[in-house]
C-alpha cells in the first residue's frame, strides 16, 4: 500500500475506490469494512456542524442540511484538531450553494450561530463594573482620548434579513409565522457570565459599537455615529453596553502611548 495517502484520499472522495492492500479474515470485500472509516469521518464532521448550526439546520430540514454539510465537509475538511470552531466558512459556502438560494437568509442565520459559539468559548475577562466606567469618565477631559476594550466574547452582525427574529422563533421566544425575514436586523452577541445572550439592537447602536470594536476612540465613535444617525444617544448606548458587561477595560490616550 502506497502510504497513508492511499488510505486518506478516498475518505473524502466517494468517487475513489477503497485502497488496495486491505484484508479481512473471512475474505469478505474490505470495501465494506473501509466504509466504516469513510462514514465516521464524514458523519462525525457533519454532526459537528449540526451541533454548531442547529437553527440553520431547522430552517432547511435535517435531510437537506446534512447533504449540504456533506459537500462542505469534503470541500473544506478541518485544518485544526480543535473542532469547536469547525464551519467558520460555512456561511460563505451557503451563499454560493445554489440549492439553498431559496432561503437567502440562511447564510446570515449561520453567521449568528457562529457568533454564539465564538462567544461561548471566548476568553474570560475581568468584570468591569458600570460604576467604574462612570468614575473613570469623570476623570478625563476629552472623550476623543478615551478608548474602550470590549469583552472578548462580543460579536456583531448586521443583516438585510431578520436573522435574530428567525433565530428567536426557534427558541420558542416568538412565533415564526409572524416574522418577516426580509426586514434588516442588527444584533449583538455576548456572553454574560456563562450564558450567551443575543440582543437585537438598533442600527445607530450597532454602528457605534462596530466603531468601538474597530478601535475608534469613544468621542470619535460617538461623533461619527451621530453624524449618520441623528437619533443616536450616547448615554443609553454606553449604559446598555456597560450593563451587559460589554466593556472590559477603559484606557486614555496617555495610557495607550506609554
Amino acid at each position: 500500500m502506497n502510504g497513508q495517502q492511499e488510505f486518506f484520499a478516498p475518505l473524502l472522495d466517494p468517487e475513489l475506490p477503497s485502497p488496495a492492500g486491505l484484508t479481512s479474515w473471512n475474505g469478505s470485500d474490505p470495501q465494506v469494512r473501509y466504509a466504516v472509516y469513510r462514514n465516521n469521518v464524514v458523519s462525525s464532521l457533519i454532526d459537528a456542524l449540526a451541533d454548531t448550526f442547529p437553527v440553520t439546520q431547522e430552517l432547511v430540514g435535517a435531510e437537506f442540511f446534512r447533504a449540504m454539510a456533506g459537500i462542505f465537509v469534503r470541500q473544506q475538511p478541518p485544518r485544526s484538531q480543535v473542532l469547536a470552531f469547525y464551519g467558520e466558512s460555512l456561511p460563505q459556502f451557503i451563499e454560493q450553494f445554489p440549492p439553498a438560494a431559496s432561503v437567502p437568509y440562511l447564510a446570515d442565520v449561520a453567521r449568528l450561530e457562529l457568533l454564539r459559539v465564538r462567544a461561548f468559548h471566548a476568553a474570560d475577562a475581568e468584570d468591569f463594573a458600570a460604576e467604574t466606567l462612570g468614575h473613570r469618565l469623570g476623570q478625563v477631559e476629552d472623550l476623543s482620548s478615551v478608548y474602550l476594550t470590549l469583552h472578548p466574547s462580543l460579536g456583531l452582525l448586521g443583516s438585510p434579513y431578520a436573522v435574530t427574529s428567525l433565530w428567536a422563533a426557534h427558541q420558542g421566544i416568538t412565533d415564526i409565522t409572524g416574522v418577516d425575514p426580509y426586514k434588516p436586523e442588527y444584533t449583538l452577541v455576548i456572553r454574560v457570565g456563562l450564558d450567551v445572550q443575543v440582543r437585537r439592537i438598533d442600527v445607530a447602536v450597532f454602528d457605534f459599537i462596530v466603531r468601538l470594536h474597530q478601535g475608534e476612540s469613544l468621542g470619535n465613535a460617538s461623533d461619527q455615529t451621530h453624524a449618520r444617525q441623528p437619533e443616536f444617544e450616547l448615554v443609553s448606548a454606553l449604559g446598555f453596553l456597560a450593563q451587559l458587561g460589554g466593556i472590559s477595560c477603559i484606557k486614555t490616550g496617555k495610557e495607550i502611548q506609554t
Binding site: 500500500m1 497513508q4 495517502q5 488510505f7 486518506f8 475518505l11 473524502l12 472509516y37 465516521n40 469521518v41 462525525s44 464532521l45 459537528a48 475538511p77 478541518p78 485544518r79 485544526s80 484538531q81 473542532l83
Partner: peptide, 17 residues
C-alpha cells in the same frame, strides 16, 4: 492511530500497518 494527513484533520482514529 492517525487522524491527520497533511494539514487535514479527519476526526477519526485510523489504522496503520
Amino acid at each position: 492511530a492517525w487522524a491527520s494527513h497533511g494539514d487535514v484533520f479527519l476526526n477519526d482514529l485510523l489504522p496503520l500497518p
